[in-house]
Amino acid sequence: MDLSDELVTDPYGVYERLRTTAPVHRILGTDGRPAWIVTRYDDVRAGLADPRLSLDKKHAQAGNYQGLQLPPALDANLLNMDPPDHTRIRRLVGKAFTPARVSQLRAPARAVADRLLDELGHDGSADLIAAYAAPLPVTVICELLGIPRDRRGDFRAWTHALIVPDSSRPRAAEQAIGAMMRFFVALIAHKRQSPEDDLLSDLIAVRDSEDGQLSEDELMSLVFLILFAGFENTVQLIGNAVWALLQHPEQLAALREDPTMIAAAVEELSRYEGPALLAIRRFPVEDVTIGGVVVPAGETVLLSLSAANRDPMRFPDPERLDIGRDASGHLALGHGIHYCLGAPLARAETEIALTALLERFTVLELDGDDAAQWRRSLRARGLKSLQVRFRTGAPGR
């Protein structure tokens, strides 16, 4: 069945229909090629941890949906790897996202959030994605990697071109990839000449050592993935969270009344309106039975994180946003060995972004009927723009 357009315009409605009729369905991806989509929580969670479902494209059968295609210099990343290569590279970068390292980033992230809110002023309207949700995580991830301000480039435009196909600009993705590669080549060369106390300099030092832990393509691909995933997912998580709270004023009021609920709220918001509709595509290395359906080796499997997170067999009344809910076990950031490496940082940034926003503005509401503009993507769930009105001071002023 060709559900690519429906999945873009009404993902949760489609997922509910699919989930209630059968656990696994044969669909066509955005490129018109077939894939199997899995929608029930238990099957999705098991699939995320199943070593028979490979991320390595060498196991892909020709003619099936394969998703975004990148040049080799950007393709040698964790989203295309199985152990032992995945284990080797994840270990190298894992130290950047430990709880201790993330804790050190909280104060700088809050300072960035406060500065961005200062720039918004006290009373007015703005696109909260462009003015707040996007610049906050890109600043944090660039600080982590050690990217100078004047070399940060237009990450939002590049990632948007890769995630959201535009038929009116058929070469947009290709041009974005070219621009990113030129940026990374120059950046790595600069850091080789002038290393600093940052993650990128550390990775370059590993690459240039004699122990062969990291190839040049793996180095560039890793930088690409950290920037792409570390930035893009968090923009979507922050933006989606604000939108969901504004759609549910009683939940927004509850969070204002008890700010200590922020960590639980972020978990529920991630479950309810997470940044990824689908996990990265997988390819069975042998025939695999999922939900009673046999998926042949080499065909494409799409595990729907959003469908699983709204499965009533796992989360009662899943269409209801409830920040008091125990949302532990949600799959918004994955599961198993491919669990999102930057999850602790994404959670911390979202907590900080929401806390600072609600502390600053006593009035925060959608600005018009078309305030939320969603991006058209089969895989990502995120806003192009979110127009809001805001005001400091007493709510009744």
Rank of each mutant, 00 (worst) to 15 (best):
I141F: 01
V140R: 03
R256T: 02
E210D: 15
L18V: 09
L386F: 04
P72D: 13
L321Y: 08
Y339P: 01
I280P: 01
G239A: 04
T87I: 09
I37S: 06
R381K: 06
R88V: 05
Y272L: 04
E16T: 15
R381D: 01
G274C: 11
F361M: 07
L68P: 04
S103Y: 02
A109T: 14
L219V: 01
A46F: 04
A307M: 08
I129S: 00
M261T: 12
P148K: 00
E218Y: 11
D326M: 08
L246V: 05
A394Q: 14
L203A: 12
D317P: 04
H330Q: 15
L222Q: 11
A189F: 08
L255Q: 06
Q213K: 09
D311A: 07
A157G: 14
P11S: 06
D311Q: 10
L305C: 06
Y65V: 03
S328Q: 13
A173Q: 10
R149H: 00
A307I: 07
A380C: 07
P165S: 09
G124T: 05
G13R: 13
P23D: 13
V138N: 00
H248Y: 07
D118T: 11
D166L: 01
Q175L: 15
D2K: 04
L79I: 14
P148G: 00
R391T: 05
T350P: 03
D5R: 14
F184N: 07
L48T: 03
D198Y: 12
D31A: 11
A265E: 00
L252E: 14
D258T: 14
A49T: 14
D56G: 02
E143V: 00
F155G: 01
A394S: 13
G47W: 05
S270F: 02
T350W: 01
K191W: 01
L252Y: 07
Q373K: 15
N240Y: 13
E257M: 09
E273W: 10
L386K: 07
D208W: 05
A327F: 05
R282P: 04
D127L: 11
L345V: 06
S54W: 03
A371K: 08
W36Q: 07
A265S: 14
A179H: 12
G13I: 03
D202I: 02
E319D: 15
L145G: 00
I129M: 12
V301R: 03
A353P: 05
G274W: 06
P148V: 00
G94E: 09
P316V: 08
T9L: 12
R26L: 14
